[in-house]
Nucleic acid binder design. Structure first.
Lengths: 191, 191
DNA sequence: TTGCATCCATACGCACGAGTATGGGTTGCG
DNA sequence: CGCAACCCATACTCGTGCGTATGGATGCAA
């Protein structure tokens, strides 16, 4: 029903603008989020935009909220369904490693941590994920204090890898090398 | 009225501009690097700037080169002087953890990885440091392949920690918690 | 069909920051 | 002393991107 492709542009909704904004952020970063550029991409003009949103910041705000809520139902929920707690962490690592697309926005927002609207969102998301890791490590048999530090270390490694390999594109890893790296992470970080 | 209050220096050199640029980058990011803002901070006007540099990009380029060359003689050289290879990695971790200031520019550049001038610099610096870790892990008794992955993991953890705690300011760690985290890193990542 | 809300186009104002033109002041040196 | 080379101030131009004003087009309900 909702056939919204590039050639066939019916009327737009606020959600369409938010999705387009997230795509643009994922590809070119928060700094590249300009209303006229987005309008061109959607096949309309600024007049449309300023009917749906009061300002550019409002769009960013809405897009971030949308992304955060969408992220609620992410891999974490599937992982928690696994019966054996000891299976969860390795499985989490492997899944995260092979789901490339969802991390693009996160990597882009990581580079926009100077923007006031981005900071609280990233703080919440990162906190939530780190806490999940904390619980997972505890359930895997670690004592709480050590589990917390391990969770921080793990998440830092994730974030750093995103920056280095994703954004910086260094080093260029083949599939085999990448898989070996993931297995090395698992062997090193999971007791 | 003597308008020039802060520095005694009445005439500026290109190096003065580059240092000021690096300070501004460390505090407010690459995006905040504006010539008129810098000029105000230095107590002069644009006229001075465009005598020393042809363009804004030229200043950024020069500042990055200056930072990279300054970074050559960093902690790494001191660490290599340690006689016992097994002592080097723990000592490196502890020193890096307590030298806060030199990481500010690196953290800021991490958020500017979409800028064409920043990417090659960061690629070189990160590559150099990772290779140093690779050698260090090898000398500590690891086999080369595992040592390389461990080096990548370690450096990713460093980068991620920078982003999360430095830029995002999360979580707020006390000195004791931070030291405990560092020791946990050492125990986990160093064989 | 009429009337109203929704959605968009066109044309503008305006702030901000990069870069230019040009002249004045300062310093070193013969 | 005097003259360059050097350093900086003032006053512009110009492109870009946000936001506004206003009217036209489209869909839906009565």
């Amino acid at each position: 029903m909702n056939v919204r492709q590039k050639p066939e542009r019916t009327r737009l909704s606020a959600e369409d603008w938010e999705d387009a904004a997230l795509n643009l952020i994922a590809e070119q970063g928060v700094g590249a989020l300009a209303v006229e550029a987005l309008a061109r991409q959607l096949g309309v003009t600024k007049g449309s935009f300023y009917w749906h949103f009061r300002t550019r910041e409002a769009l960013l705000q809405a897009a971030l909220e949308r992304w955060e809520q969408y992220g609620e139902r992410e891999i974490i929920n599937q992982i928690e369904a696994l019966p054996d707690p000891r299976e969860r962490l390795p499985e989490l690592f492997r899944r995260v490693a092979h789901e490339v697309q969802p991390h693009r926005v996160y990597a882009a927002l990581l580079k926009a941590l100077d923007h006031p609207l981005v900071v609280p969102v990233m703080a919440r998301v990162s906190k939530r994920r780190t806490e999940f890791l904390h619980v997972a490590y505890t359930e895997a048999g670690m004592e709480p204090t050590e589990a917390l530090n391990r969770a921080r270390l793990t998440y830092a490694a994730y974030v750093g890898f995103l920056q280095l390999n994703f954004t910086l594109g260094l080093p260029r890893l083949t599939h085999e090398e990448f898989d070996a790296y993931v297995e090395h992470m698992i062997a090193t970080l999971i007791p």
